[in-house]
Design a protein around this nucleic acid. Structure first.
Lengths: 148, 148
DNA sequence: TTATGTGCAAACTCTTTGCATTACC
DNA sequence: GGTAATGCAAAGAGTTTGCACATAA
């Protein structure tokens, strides 16, 4: 079952506390925007969204919060093409991306075999694999249908 | 056997001609810098390198040439972390990257099985795969040895 | 000759930083 | 009360664009 926002909020509180930092509603609001979004959002999109909740928030705060949240592993970023850096909530399940070069849609997927194979390849090179990011570019089903 | 620079130069000439554009030594010089480099270079690094050949070249020309060369498929770019966009000559063989998060070294590799598996995964989603980019992050052999 | 490519500088976009103020602990 | 976080504005970095000039075809 999907995690509730409270779970992420709790995690944020723990991190902040454990580091002797202070809790702020701004960071929470930014996290909430990402929680509520199914899309991957740019910093500016996040800024615009969070402004709907808190009209006084500053862009600098968004940047600082995003950097912080990413460092703490609460969110992830992905960047490709000319679309710039985009953020998503780390919902705990690693996944890779298929990106439609026609409509820019991002499809998330996970494949066990793919993960295993990568680990094997890394080992073969004596490389200690920590993370990876795979972006597959192409045309999604819908765009293929539309074009024909 | 590895391609000579003349081969790339020839390809550039063909492209330029076929598009009714004009040949310029600047684009050639930039291509040469990438040909001579085993590393992935940022725009600024390329600018500095090409200045050694042609001290009058402008940064804007480098940006315009890189965009052009990438569009034409002569070079590829890869961007990750905070290192920004880096370029490499397209030597005709697709490959993926292992990136050492300690020393920033980039190790290129190619794995047939991995390619096949991706194609299968794409098909399963009705996605028409055109290209992909896989970056594996971790610690390279040398850095592992150094740390122990 | 004529349109493309270049070099320069200015403009732009995105992101970061300094600083006074606010708000959490 | 003390320190981290914020909001604002200014500064920075990286990239793009306008324009006059140079150059390939």
């Amino acid at each position: 079952m999907p995690k509730k926002f409270e779970d992420y909020k709790e995690k944020l509180k723990e991190i902040v506390k454990s580091k002797g930092l202070k809790y702020s509603t701004q960071r929470e609001e930014i996290l909430k925007v990402l929680y509520n979004s199914k899309e991957h959002l740019t910093s500016e999109e996040i800024y615009n969204e969070v402004k709907k909740i808190n009209r006084n928030i500053g862009l600098a705060t968004v940047y600082r919060a995003l950097a912080f949240l990413e460092e703490q592993g609460l969110i992830n970023s992905i960047s490709f093409g000319s679309e710039g850096k985009k953020y998503e909530l780390n919902r705990g399940k690693h996944h890779d991306h298929m990106i439609c070069i026609n409509c820019n849609k991002i499809i998330e997927f996970f494949d066990e075999e793919l993960e295993k194979l990568q680990k094997e390849i890394a080992e073969k090179h004596g490389f200690k694999l920590i993370a990876h990011e795979l972006n597959m570019y192409g045309i999604c089903k819908e765009c293929q249908d539309k074009k024909s």
